[in-house]
Design a protein around this nucleic acid. Sequence first.
DNA 1: CGGCACTTTGAAAGCGCTTTCACCATGTGC
DNA 2: GCACATGGTGAAAGCGCTTTCAAAGTGCCG
Lengths: 328, 328
Amino acid sequence: MADVARVAGVSLATVSRALNAPATVSDDLRLRVQAAADRLGYAPNPIAGGLAGNHTPLVGVVVPSLTNSFFAATLERMTTLLEAEGYQLMIGHHGYDLGREERIVTAFAGWNPSAIVLTGVDHSRGTVAALSTVDCPVVEMWDLDGRPLDSLVGFSNAEAGRMAGRFLAESGRRRVAFVCSVPDRDPRAEARARGFAEAHAGVTGAGGRVEIVAVEGRDIGDGGIGLQRVLERMPDVEAIAFSGDMLAVGAVLEAERRGLQVPRDLAIVGYGDLDIAAHTNPPLTTVRPPRSEIGEVVARHILKRLKDPASGGETVKLDLELVRRGSA
Amino acid sequence: MADVARVAGVSLATVSRALNAPATVSDDLRLRVQAAADRLGYAPNPIAGGLAGNHTPLVGVVVPSLTNSFFAATLERMTTLLEAEGYQLMIGHHGYDLGREERIVTAFAGWNPSAIVLTGVDHSRGTVAALSTVDCPVVEMWDLDGRPLDSLVGFSNAEAGRMAGRFLAESGRRRVAFVCSVPDRDPRAEARARGFAEAHAGVTGAGGRVEIVAVEGRDIGDGGIGLQRVLERMPDVEAIAFSGDMLAVGAVLEAERRGLQVPRDLAIVGYGDLDIAAHTNPPLTTVRPPRSEIGEVVARHILKRLKDPASGGETVKLDLELVRRGSA
DNA sequence: CGGCACTTTGAAAGCGCTTTCACCATGTGC
DNA sequence: GCACATGGTGAAAGCGCTTTCAAAGTGCCG
């Protein structure tokens, strides 16, 4: 930076101002400093900047899992937008372990990041404490059913379930089931299950029956297990919704093995709209969560709040979409 | 840190040494400093540390895509191991665009990271230049067919193809095909295709015939297209290998639609061992790349080199595995 | 018992920026 | 024409740590 100052014939302070707060400097100087910086190929040192100022151009993001394509899509979009504005993403994952989340957030806090993004609204006391030591926007994402710390961008899992329940009820299915994976009692899947039952009952009233069945995993193989369990309890089931597409795909395959024709004998609805959903036989009807939309809205929201520090926390509710394909 | 020094009754320099280079300080002092730090809940400021010293506890990782479950598995394992040692991961993705890779690496370099991890061995001149300005280990991963900049952890894509080709030849399939997706002329898929043809010819000699067929996408739907194209050119084909599991799954579904029985009428081999591979009907025989093993080895390698700066670059070749299931 | 090498510790100089504060040169109102 | 507000600029003090260098303390040898 000293070189730039020398070449432009100004002081260090002016270079800093010209580059970071163009409005506070005369046009003439700004141009001269810009030219000098370009000529010398000057790249600001973000570490020094972070030490002297309050914030580093880092955004800490913590997700439960990187291999989950939902969060991956969110992260991908978020990285792209934030990178373009000069921010780097620090990413951590905790596998739904609030203790690990706390450790990650504490580590992030030490970096004085420009923003911190969390997944979900359930956090340990320690996480909240760590967050309060760092003065930056905090955005929670994905969940909507809870009290936000600051900003919140998400959708309602209950609504995802309701969409499926309402749709099946309105297309005439009276005897239905919801297969819910319960690895570590996933509250999101449970919210979808509740929403499903509630909406179906809301439409069919006393004429309908809803069975909720649990399976232990969320892999494709567990879908077949779920189908079998439903059939044991409710042999004349007309439609099944699943807490995830992988389960639903497994159920489509298992139904085929059993000679059940989808959707004639049995309608199947998934959740997630994974790539594979469009390519089963028949293709899967599913509820699509706004995966990359979340990433986009979170990134834009962070950028807005950083540009205008006066703006405060805000809750953004994004919509889900029922993607109708062949299976229901 | 000043507080810790006061409580422990030593100077700032001693606190710094006691915490970062325990060997250079007497046991007595180290314990006193540790106790004081614990009591005060002192957490070192990584930004100040980075500015004063040479390196920040950051590791920059650039992958082509976050939504690709191969890289996601690698990242997940790598994050876990590195996080446990106090490092944070900065993650960028470039979508196979070398220009974006260069921009990401340049940005990473400004952070004086402890290590930089790249995917593949093809990089722009500018990327290499940016890398040379930062004094830290550089690890390339996934590819092995190329000249490493420093360290390299990967496997041979050609070998992946060879495994499939050898396996099909040895199980008696003489008339075979390889369906290769060519989005942006993926050199990895092409290496697998070459390896496949070479190994098959190596076993069958003049008695065999190999057809290589291109498809434009890599989604599940493209597999059916690939199968159709092979059938047009080689109606009596006995086995087909695919450059990816999604294609292979699509082919399994398409074969079923056409009344071809897998593997009796047609053997199918995939590549990738995605979750879904184990759950098609029949389950997919596929070549499994060492996804999370790469992440693990890269992380351990970085840790080793950081602990012992004398140790230099190194190339680690990881093995693939042919997972035999029902489809071949 | 003096002198030497070696170990252990502290003082202080930065690392590359941001930001406060003081300063100077303008323009404005009376 | 003078006091005053206004806008633009520079000097210098850190931000919280690491590391060099010198000093002090320790043990060993002749």
